[in-house]
Design a protein around this nucleic acid. Structure first.
Lengths: 193, 193
DNA sequence: GCAGATTGCCTAGCAGCGCTAGGATGTGCG
DNA sequence: CGCACATCCTAGCGCTGCTAGGCAATCTGC
């Protein structure tokens, strides 16, 4: 029994090692630098070991993405609970979200550009995927007025995601970043029309 | 002289053939199906011919993206000029934009997910990249109030882009698509706060 | 009309990718 | 100690984007 559990523990550790190595490599050199050979060298095992833990490279990226969703939810929650008023909470949440996307672009990419095999928008989906949305919802709901809070949150989220993506790819100038965020938050803190 | 011009004309035609083939293949089977070998077979030439026209696969995708920007600008303009009031114009522009992204996902991908080597957000950039933004700007400006029209347009654009991306990847349920668009447009047609 | 120079194109191949089959190596158990 | 099992690595498959080098067809000057 103890041998079995030790092996399982070691396996779990190595699996975590793979995910961490993939994430760090992606954050340092971008996802195009994360090849299975390179990753194997990084963890000091041979290539096939990766496939004894994950179905393929996509599954490893998905595992990294899941980590990202967990961390994003934590950071957004921290920002929300630290803010005082409802308007301030929305602004804080928005700033935390875009800051996350900007600081960890590779991680954000794994979450939203790659890793399509994650189940979203489902009440029975994994918790880590719902938590982040829940945080946004908590911040948006008090300001929803007559609008459906859930759908309004989705719309607000889309605004944040759009800003993050367009700024990251150089399609929007970075100087006005705070200004745009201010405008977006402003449009969602007015009374409903 | 005539021989030279004929050759140039034929070269230009073949170049267009490449771009069209790449686009059609991408729209039919996705960009992952667009390999240089497949593309070469499609145009009935050998692989190296592609490289006599374009620096690489990325340049071909960029050429497709440029086509996309031109067409998007045309469609958004048509929607805007057909609408009567300012609020209706914004709604029409928003609908046209997201409809474009939804109907031609591969093309939209080329424009925004790939093809990072395009110069954006620059007054001296290519016209086709400015035209689309200009159309959005025309629709947003009358509703900007005290806000900077350009930056407000960028923010609105981000909202549209975010909706398009999240809906396309299944991260937002499709049923409420129109509802979300309505909410977004509503938040940008209120008087400035 | 014919040799020489030039242009255009294709065949073949390189290095790298994700992924997998099969054998070697080391570990735990009777 | 010897067997059985689990673990891991070497080697290789088919694919990718891209390129070198040679062949063939075309245009030019005599």
């Amino acid at each position: 029994m103890t041998i079995e559990t030790r092996r399982e523990r070691e396996r779990a550790q190595r699996e975590q090692l793979i995910v961490t190595a993939a994430r760090e490599l992606a954050e340092a050199e971008g996802w195009e630098a994360v090849t299975t050979r390179r990753l194997a060298a990084e963890i000091e095992y041979s290539q096939p070991v990766l496939y004894s833990h994950f179905k393929g490279k996509g599954a490893i990226m998905t595992a990294v993405a899941v980590q990202g969703f967990e961390e994003l939810a934590v950071e957004v929650r921290a920002a929300r609970t630290a803010a005082r008023g409802t308007r301030e909470a929305l602004a804080a949440v928005a700033a935390a979200y875009t800051h996350f996307a900007q600081q960890r672009p590779a991680l954000y990419d794994a979450m939203f550009t790659h890793a399509v095999d994650l189940t979203f928008a489902s009440p029975d989906g994994p918790a880590y995927l719902r938590d982040g949305f829940e945080e946004l919802l908590q911040a948006v709901r008090p300001l929803a007025g007559d609008d459906d809070p859930g759908i309004l949150t989705e719309t607000f989220w889309a605004g944040l995601h759009g800003l993050a993506m367009l700024e990251r790819s150089g399609r929007l100038p970075l100087e006005a970043r705070d200004h745009r965020l201010e405008l977006l938050v402003g449009r969602f803190t007015q009374a409903a029309g």
